[in-house]
């Protein structure tokens, strides 16, 4: 995995695979406190405490847990290397929240990468799922909410259609650029 945006895609795919119907992604860049937080929350099937405790270890993965595989161990590794940590909070039947924290200025922190490309693909593929993406940088906030998109576009439109994807692409890229504007 070259950058964090690919890890994020992986985390959200886990949330989808867990049967989550409401999935949220929060990215927070805080330069003053020097941290970067990435949190993916779902209301899917959740994990037992035993299971949650071992998902960071690729070698503890048995065949039944194969779907977890290498995704979380890889994120755990990059977070620890960058002065951060990976937290997994989960309750069976209630859902899972995976939070990765990095020291923003740490030299080993992977770059965020192409977040717009990742979010576009998630949003386009979320039939029957509500996905909310919130990105905070200092005082600036950007939000993409597929619930809102669904309300505007109606039930029949597939977000995987190229016209919708094109809109998503522009909306995300412009929104993310605006996050970098100096705080007023």
């Amino acid at each position: 995995m070259r950058d964090l945006s690919l890890h994020i895609l992986d985390l959200v795919q886990n949330a989808v695979a867990a049967g989550g119907k409401n999935i949220s992604l929060l990215i927070e860049e805080d330069e003053k406190k020097d941290f970067l937080t990435i949190a993916v929350k779902d209301d899917g099937k959740g994990m037992t405490p035993d299971f949650a405790a071992k998902v960071k270890d690729p070698f503890a993965t048995t065949r039944t847990t194969r779907k977890v595989g290498l995704g979380l161990p890889l994120i755990d590794m990059t977070a620890e290397r960058a002065g951060g940590r990976l937290d997994i909070a989960s309750r069976p039947g209630r859902g899972t929240t995976v939070t990765a924290v990095y020291r923003l200025s740490h030299i080993d922190r992977p770059p965020l990468g192409d977040i717009a490309a990742t979010v576009k693909i998630i949003a386009a593929g979320c039939q029957g799922i509500f996905f909310r993406y919130e990105h905070r940088k200092g005082r600036n906030v950007f939000v993409l909410d597929t619930k809102q998109m669904r309300e505007i576009l109606g039930e029949e439109v597939d977000f995987g259609e190229s016209a919708v994807m094109e809109w998503l692409d522009g909306f995300l890229r412009e929104g993310l650029l605006a996050l970098d504007k100096t705080e007023g």
């Binding site: 995995m1 690919l6 895609l9 992986d10 795919q13 595989g69 290498l70 995704g71 890889l74 192409d114 490309a117 990742t118 693909i121 386009a124 593929g125 597939d158 995987g160 259609e161 190229s162 016209a163 994807m165 094109e166």
Partner: peptide
């Protein structure tokens, strides 16, 4: 994880771009 690490996101983006370039409607990803 395997697909993403192998470049799935870029492949999907390239396929979408190709569909868009040719003005095809009705292709669902």
């Amino acid at each position: 994880t395997c697909g993403i690490a192998a470049g799935a996101r870029e492949v999907m983006a390239a396929l979408m771009e190709e569909v868009k370039k040719r003005g095809l409607a009705g292709v669902v990803f």
